[in-house]
Amino acid sequence: MDPVVVVEPLKRRHCADCRRGPLERLVLEFNAPRCLDCADLGHLVFLPRGNAALTRRAREASSLWAVVVRHNRRRTRYERQGLLVEEAALARAEAACLADAEARARRRERDAVRRAAEDVRFTARLTAEIMRLFPSCPLDRALDVAAHTSVRGSGRVGRTAAGRALDEGAVTAAVRASVRHLDTPYDGLLMRGVPRHEARRRVAPAVEATLTAWRTPPS
């Protein structure tokens, strides 16, 4: 069964029965405009388009509803603007959507707590792996490297699949990057316009010397 269609007119129109107007919305019956009251739709309330879940629930809960359209001259077609639904149905739909929103908010909070706990555990494991591979690395430095490289959403080594698996190459790459930036003039070379590959070549001996020293167990 086709839904009742209510039109938002572009021109000033008056009701063919009660002569009220100009009408914000009307129903065409036998090509004659009628106001919502004369069309027995005056008790319905307007629900604008935009919230699919609210629209679906309000339509399902309303024993009588109508589609509201407006003609788009540029596209030469009628476009849906929303629905007319029973006020009680809209209230029930809004309550259901609010309950869903609250449930989603609680789930997001639980997920955030879970992810934070996972991140803490992973950072601890990454720190331990750094200290295993580089036993002479200062503990504070290992903690900083692990925290920096494992930031969620950063795209850094610690967030890659290899990094999450504590792959030795990925862990070493994270430590090497830290040494390059903090213990060599690498950043200064970049600021002076030295190409990245050339800057890396210049500081490579110092980086490898530090890594070698950190790989040596403390005496």
Rank of each mutant, 00 (worst) to 15 (best):
L84Q: 11
T184Y: 04
W214E: 08
V67L: 08
A66C: 09
L47G: 03
A101R: 15
A165R: 14
R107W: 07
A174W: 02
A52V: 05
D100M: 07
V67H: 03
D111E: 14
E168P: 07
V171P: 03
V175R: 03
L139A: 10
V7I: 15
A112D: 05
A53E: 11
C18T: 06
V145A: 01
C137W: 00
P135M: 01
R215H: 10
F46Q: 12
V69S: 03
H71R: 14
D183N: 10
W65E: 00
E24K: 14
R115L: 11
E102Y: 07
G158F: 00
R132V: 00
T123A: 11
A209D: 12
T149F: 00
E168C: 01
A117M: 05
R104N: 14
R159S: 13
L47S: 01
P22H: 12
S219D: 13
R215C: 06
L190C: 04
H197K: 15
L23Y: 03
E79C: 06
L28P: 02
C15P: 10
A116L: 06
A142M: 01
A16Q: 12
R200K: 15
C97S: 07
R104G: 07
P217D: 03
R164Y: 05
V171I: 12
R57S: 05
R200P: 00
I130R: 04
L189V: 02
V151E: 10
C18D: 13
A170N: 05
A101D: 11
V69E: 11
L143P: 00
V69M: 04
E79T: 12
G188E: 08
G82K: 04
M191W: 03
A96C: 03
S62G: 06
L143M: 10
R110W: 10
C38T: 05
V151I: 11
D187E: 12
P195Y: 04
R74P: 01
F122A: 08
A105G: 09
